[in-house]
């Protein structure tokens, strides 16, 4: 094929082939009107509309696959590390994982249920939830001066781990607002807690046969926890005397044995 040089510039030239096609080529010292045999023609980018659609389809398929994989991959369920019972007058129970994140919160009694109604605990740790529950209790007039906040943890390890911080957090929340006592201990250490739940009045009342305990949340793997304290325990028979006993037992009340964990 021969090419006729139709135009020359320093950086390129325009040539026409014998089939009437015009090309941009390298100007290898050509002159206007030259007939050349073997030019270096600039490669033309052929637009391929199908290529665009192919890429678009590939993206859609990849996205769909990712979404499918995302929704099909089982989300790891939180593993129960410990349950933390907060008894003010309302009693609530939160389930926490090993990092301290609260993944379940339930009211043990009617007041507890009412207290946490509408409260969003998701993504919060045990300190935040405890603090906010105390705030709620103060706001709802459940907590007043002279009362006791009892925090019970059903796992010895968790008690060591979370106990000091929980007590500190609770004290921080009530400081300057109400003159209450904060007690932190093993689940079942404070009989008064159960008593308070079942009988808010100081006078002894018949107790239910079992202590209300939170039902396990579906899909949650539970670690072995100490059995709940049975109400058949004779301590329940006299709430006021039990309260005094509790002050002297092995539980961690403020300024007592609990200092071991500070």
């Amino acid at each position: 094929m021969k090419y006729l040089v139709m135009d020359t510039k320093m950086t390129y030239c325009i040539i026409m082939d014998e089939m009437g096609a015009f090309h941009v080529a390298a100007n290898l010292n050509y002159h206007l009107g030259d007939t050349i045999d073997d030019p270096l023609i600039m490669k033309k980018e052929v637009k391929k509309p199908w290529l665009k659609w192919t890429f678009a389809s590939a993206w859609v398929v990849a996205l769909a696959t990712l979404l499918l994989l995302y929704f099909q991959t089982p989300v790891p369920l939180p593993v129960l590390y410990s349950r933390i019972y907060i008894s003010i007058n309302p009693e609530v129970c939160m389930s926490v994982d090993e990092s301290g994140e609260v993944f379940a919160l339930e009211g043990i009694d009617e007041e507890g249920k009412a207290l946490i109604e509408g409260y969003d605990y998701k993504g919060k740790d045990e300190l935040t939830v405890t603090g906010e529950i105390i705030d709620l209790a103060i706001a709802e007039n459940y907590l007043a001066s002279g009362m006791t906040i009892t925090i019970e943890i059903d796992n010895e390890e968790a008690l060591k781990e979370f106990g000091p911080a929980l007590r500190q957090e609770a004290n921080k929340r009530i400081e300057g607002r109400v003159d209450a006592v904060v007690e932190v201990g093993n689940y079942g250490s404070f009989d008064i807690a159960q008593e308070t739940v079942t009988s808010p009045s100081p006078s002894p009342t018949p107790l239910p046969s079992t202590v209300p305990s939170p039902s396990p949340s579906p899909g949650v793997e539970y670690l072995p926890s100490p059995p709940p304290v049975s109400n058949n325990d004779s301590n329940y028979q006299d709430a006021s005397s039990n309260y005094d006993d509790r002050q002297n037992n092995s539980a961690y009340s403020e300024g007592s044995n609990y200092s071991n964990y500070d």
Partner: peptide, 9 residues
């Protein structure tokens, strides 16, 4: 000249 054409491309 080849370099210039490549620059065009």
């Amino acid at each position: 000249s080849v370099g210039m054409l490549a620059f065009h491309e």
